[in-house]
């Protein structure tokens, strides 16, 4: 297993990419890992795309800027166009197939299509699409344990109790897709 894992979360402002990135970082920190969460910032956040990078490591983290991340979760087309070509060969790309009807066209990375908006709407709240994605990402990679992830969700969202349940269910839905993908990939 690699000492260090990196993921970029990218989408429109308002899709909650920063939030899921932070939740992942909190969780990894709680598990005793070294973490860095670094956002894009400034005018590019105004109405355009937003993205953050999360680095999780067993050892001291060097560069917080990752030019070629191992994985990315893209929530919209501009993010696919920007980060699709940057993923390291052998890496993983999760695509929000509710809003993106193409793929990266690369054959040297793995791709997982997740209709996160459709799933979120079915669950009853389009805003939890980001949690579906996080569930799928962690299901596919197993970077952190779901127990810790859900614990940290409760901690961070404790003040909005009415939203906890649906967020839990969103992560669970994503998890199913991610874990199924991992099993399949493992048997290839």
């Amino acid at each position: 297993m690699l000492k260090q894992k990196e993921v970029v979360m990218a989408g429109f402002g308002g899709q909650g990419v920063m939030t899921v990135g932070q939740l992942l970082a909190y969780t990894a920190m709680d598990e005793g890992k070294q973490v860095v969460w670094i956002p894009s910032y400034g005018p590019e956040m105004r109405g355009g795309t937003a993205n953050c990078t999360v680095v999780v490591s067993d050892v001291r983290i060097g560069s917080p800027i990752i030019n070629n991340p191992q994985s990315a979760c893209v929530f919209n087309r501009p993010s696919l166009d920007k980060f699709g070509p940057l993923i390291r060969a052998g890496g993983l790309l999760l695509i929000n197939s509710s809003l993106i009807d193409v793929t990266s066209g690369r054959d040297d990375i793995e791709e997982l299509l997740v209709p996160v908006n459709d799933i979120a709407i079915k669950l009853g709240n389009p805003k939890v699409a980001n949690m579906v994605m996080l569930g799928a990402y962690n299901g596919a990679t197993g970077i952190v344990s779901f127990d810790t992830l859900l614990k940290m969700l409760n901690v961070k969202m404790g003040h909005k109790k009415e939203l906890l349940d649906i967020n839990h269910r969103a992560i669970a839905e994503g998890r199913k897709i991610g874990e199924k993908f991992r099993t399949k990939a493992g048997t290839k």
């Binding site: 932070q22 920190m29 973490v35 860095v36 969460w37 670094i38 956002p39 917080p64």
Partner: peptide
Amino acid sequence: DGMIGQMMES
């Protein structure tokens, strides 16, 4: 620099 300011670490 902007990195130190913007990034989150433990």
